[in-house]
Design a binder for these strands. Sequence first.
DNA 1: CTAAAGATGTCCT
DNA 2: GGACATCTTTAGA
Length: 204
Amino acid sequence: MKHLSHASVSSSPPLVRSFYERETVNVAKELLGKILVRSFRSTVLQGIIVETEAYGGEEDPASHAYRGPTERNQVMYGPPGHAYVYFTYGMHYCLNVKTGPNGQAGAVLIRALQPASGIDRMKKVRGTERIKDLTNGPAKLTQAFDVTRDLNGHDLTTGRRLFIADNADPGKFEIASSSRIGVRAGTDRLWRFFIRGNQFVSKQ
DNA sequence: CTAAAGATGTCCT
DNA sequence: GGACATCTTTAGA
């Protein structure tokens, strides 16, 4: 069981827009080991990103943008570095970051985190004491981090409310890939990326 | 307007 | 391994 070193408190600034304004698959890989930060009035939650998935535009049959722009997916066509939050299965939210240039659809789904700080609050919100179950899935982490509709379109480069920061001490890890989880189409693309051996990855 | 599926999680057998 | 909760979005009539 691989465990990344605990970067309990990151004081790193938010990743800049040019980080997101690149090819989606590359951004998906490079987000591994980075820190998702959610700040409230008197609390800060942090988790190390350990699993991501890349989604393209009209050429990707698994993407929400496969059939062109709609009301739901409009953030995927907007400027890079903004949060695309969507509601699914009648009860769950999923968090993506918009990637690539303005006008071209692309996003990376954040699928799992390794909790780093604010764990007590995550336990309370998730209703479990098991750290392994706090953020090991796309809808689990949005619940733990209180990411809902009102953060759809949120700019992740401002450092307010929700952002992603560099990890000062990510340690060494190996990136593994597989086809994306929960999609019927586009399974030929190995666009799911995760830290090999990390116990917070959602599925083996 | 109607209906079916969905980038999931939880509980049950 | 399978049922089911629950509702928005999208496609098709």
